[in-house]
Design a protein around this nucleic acid. Structure first.
Lengths: 201, 201
DNA sequence: GTCTATAAATTGATAGAC
DNA sequence: GTCTATCAATTTATAGAC
């Protein structure tokens, strides 16, 4: 056998954590090796280069997280239900993977093009969501709001708390990680109420 | 004279741009020198080390941006006016300095403690804002909402679009930088309406 | 004050033994 | 498959001439 699947997994796991915490430029191959309990040479045996390793990880992240989001878009329900489902499942994904939003945010800065391409090739189609909003406006269910503004509102309210987690935790909640988790659990269930109240006619 | 103030400024300017674009770990002293039109040795003559340079810049960023925010908190106006003024001036600051939110976000990941200390020592007191919200709830002006959730809502809606600028621009607006600027100008004037509608009784 | 040259340390990657 | 040793390139920082 050419590869030890267990070692391969250990490396991928360690690398994921390192990249999530420190970003691409902040991560050291030595750091990944230490975390995986192996040495640098073995890293290069399993994964050709730092960049190759990174690309595998970011692809994997999107393979996991994007489909859950897309499926909600495409369901044939009314706008309010879509918003409820989207916010709830979106926040839930990141409660279980709290470092991913920061990871993605760092990648936005380092390589915006790659990220945009990745999302687009993942099959995310914002137009479906836009059309649902436009329809709701036309039918008089919600106030006259730009679909773009509303979408940005929804995503901002879900994602930003994770990106600014230390600030939210220490400065606003004046607490610890447990407090943040409680805060986000509550948010998961309540944020759609805030949004819908803000657009309902 | 020991320092050429003009050169000193040129360096600081170049370094600010480099750090904002590439983050601490992505920035090279050579890159700063190139941008400033001088050489590396002179960088170290004016600023002891990369880290020292970075600290000066991030301190300066906060000295500029924090007071404008704090002042709005402390004004003795009702909650709705506070929200209107805060969102408008907050977004306006970042329209003029669009890379700062990403810069700060990166620093959140690299050194959360330093950032929290910096903000606290800048005199930001969230309690004043919290109390204003609690009072508005008690007096029946707004629905029963957690002050923490509302504050996070407000900040998220203002800041996140800047952090995710490339995604917003290309994926949601399907446009360019000009479109993003228009989008944020509109947002600056309208976002408080959305927030207030979401909490008003 | 500003430059060239170079030291000193770090880091991604490879060679080769076992 | 996994390791030690080492290379080659990069990068921060300093020494010293002008």
């Amino acid at each position: 056998m050419k590869y030890n699947i267990d070692t391969s997994e250990k490396i991928l796991n360690a690398a994921t954590h390192e990249f999530e915490e420190k970003g691409y430029n902040g991560t050291r191959m030595q750091g990944i090796a230490n975390r995986a309990g192996i040495n640098k040479a073995l890293l290069h045996y399993y994964y050709k280069s730092k960049d190759a390793l990174f690309q595998i990880i970011i692809h994997k992240a999107f393979k996991v997280f994007i489909p859950q989001i897309v499926s909600v878009f495409e369901e044939d329900t009314d706008l309010f239900t879509t918003i409820e489902k989207f916010t709830s499942s979106y926040i839930d994904v990141y409660i279980k993977n709290p470092r991913v939003p920061s990871f993605i945010t760092q990648e936005i800065n380092n390589n915006p093009e790659r990220l945009v391409n990745l999302i687009q090739s993942s099959g995310v189609n914002v137009e479906i969501f836009k059309n649902k909003i436009i329809k709701a406006v036309k039918e008089g269910q919600i106030i006259d709001i730009d679909p773009e503004q509303l979408i940005v509102n929804i995503v901002s309210l879900c994602l930003f708390p994770f990106v600014a987690k230390p600030i939210v935790t220490k400065l606003i909640l004046r607490g610890n990680d447990k407090d943040f988790d409680r805060f986000m659990e509550k948010r998961k269930n309540e944020i759609s109420t805030f949004i819908i109240k803000g657009i309902r006619k």
